[in-house]
């Protein structure tokens, strides 16, 4: 698409606006994390790293970070294998009612997280009454809820990678004498790899940053990082939160750049 110059300018302006909207708040958070004054205002009265010390001393953020990490890892570990198996069966076995099953598995994406969150909260309270044990504000309860995020993303991404695959390669391997399991291990699985990696990445992201689904399911001492941040922000806006966020931003950036060394992120999505 070669655009004439007014069109080119408009195109560039839209792309620029999109990147500004995406990046401006993230950059701003990093900037205010070193402002000295308690109430954020420009220009800064001076610069300090005290807020990082304060963030470290406030247990809620460190604990929230660890909880979020645990929940995201466990939910990914449960959801990705189950979701991958389901996507594989749906694409290859084409079972009767496959369309309905696909809709069911992608269902959590169509239900607003708030609705699913309140439904789960009610369900957990009922189950607690029956089973006579805690489920809300436990790690298991949070992980189970977040599996609802990881399954649909996995089904969606792995299905896409399977549909794009040429089955002739499998037939060729089978004709050359490979056993069905060898065909799966040496041909099918490698072809699914980008889809599975993308599924792991997106599952982890979805779980780690989730707020709406978790809001009612967290409890004292068992709070995820986004909920801990929201609770803090509802009462005060000082740079402590910005310091926590900056550490998180830098960790995430390093993690993604390192991941990109091994698998090209641009090619997985």
């Amino acid at each position: 698409m070669t655009l004439p110059s007014p069109g080119r300018v408009a195109f560039a302006a839209l792309v620029g606006a999109a990147f500004t909207l995406i990046l401006a708040p993230v950059v701003m958070v990093m900037v205010i994390s070193i402002f000295r004054q308690e109430i954020v205002s420009f220009p800064p009265e001076g610069l300090t790293l005290d807020w990082y010390v304060n963030a470290w001393e406030r247990q809620e953020f460190a604990r929230g970070f660890i909880t979020s990490l645990q929940v995201a890892l466990l939910a990914t570990l449960v959801g990705v294998p189950f979701g991958t198996a389901a996507a594989f069966a749906l694409v290859r076995a084409k079972p009767r009612g496959g369309g309905a099953l696909n809709t069911l598995l992608l269902g959590p994406l169509a239900v607003p997280g708030v609705v699913a969150g309140t439904a789960l909260y009610m369900f957990y309270l009922r189950a607690e009454f029956w089973l006579d044990r805690d489920i809300t504000s436990t790690l298991e309860g949070l992980v189970a809820a977040h599996v609802l995020l990881t399954i649909p993303w996995t089904v969606r991404l792995v299905t896409a990678s399977l549909q794009g695959m040429d089955q002739a390669a499998e037939e060729a391997a089978a004709n050359l004498g490979a056993r069905p399991f060898t065909v799966f291990r040496r041909v099918t699985l490698p072809a699914m790899r980008p889809g599975i990696i993308a599924a792991c990445l997106f599952s982890f992201i979805q779980s780690f940053e989730n707020l709406e689904l978790s809001l009612l399911l967290v409890g004292p001492g068992r709070t995820t990082l986004p909920v801990a941040m929201l609770n803090y922000l509802e009462f005060r806006v000082d740079p402590t939160l910005a310091a926590v966020a900056t550490v998180q931003i830098l960790l995430v950036a390093v993690l993604m750049l390192v991941t990109d060394r091994f698998v090209s992120i641009a090619r997985t999505v």
């Binding site: 995430v252 950036a253 993604m256 641009a266």
Partner: peptide
């Protein structure tokens, strides 16, 4: 692609804090 994707991991609470610092009365 990484630039587009990584704010997703940062979460919307953090980005809301960024907007507060950008748009507030004493904001940038």
């Amino acid at each position: 692609t990484i630039v587009v994707m990584f704010p997703l991991l940062v979460g919307n609470v953090v980005r809301a804090a960024g907007w507060l610092a950008l748009l507030g009365n004493g904001g940038a």
